[in-house]
């Protein structure tokens, strides 16, 4: 009988916690995508408004700004942004469906695949056009 020391950090009142092994099902990954993209968009949005207003208000700088956006690194960032936006939206529509139209076991995975496909498709369209 060996003794393993485990660094568990268990709170007396709240008990043990889940780890990654409990988070392997697709619906959980949909949640992570939704939450991470939401945080990213919430942080980006105020910046988007301010930069847009500044650039348009000063037309001379707008074209300079648009030139800056043509850099590959910026194009990549923009594509990721579009991906985040469409992923968050598609995932959100899936949730609205589950909550208001009803939960059905048979199309859960289909709905997830659809949301992911739409998100990736739009991001690809954007990346190819840009």
């Amino acid at each position: 009988m060996n003794r393993d020391v485990a660094h568990q950090g268990v709170n007396s009142f709240r008990g043990r916690r889940n780890d990654a092994r409990a988070r392997t099902h697709p619906a959980y990954w949909a949640f992570i995508v939704h939450r991470v993209s939401g945080i990213g968009l919430a942080l980006f949005l105020p910046i988007h408004f301010v930069v847009l207003a500044q650039a348009i208000a000063h037309p001379a700088t707008l074209n300079a700004f648009l030139d800056w956006t043509r850099q590959p690194a910026v194009k990549l960032a923009e594509t990721l942004l579009v991906l985040a936006l469409v992923a968050h939206t598609a995932g959100g529509v899936r949730l609205l469906f589950i909550e208001f139209v009803g939960w059905r076991a048979d199309w859960q995975k289909t709905a997830l695949s659809l949301a992911a496909a739409v998100a990736l498709g739009c991001a690809l369209l954007f990346a190819l056009a840009a």
């Binding site: 949005l45 105020p46 408004f49 301010v50 847009l52 207003a53 348009i56 208000a57």
Partner: peptide, 14 residues
């Protein structure tokens, strides 16, 4: 309100 203000201003400018 920050989002509303900044966003409305951006719309006004644009």
């Amino acid at each position: 309100f920050l989002l509303l203000g900044a966003g409305s201003y951006a719309v006004h400018v644009l």
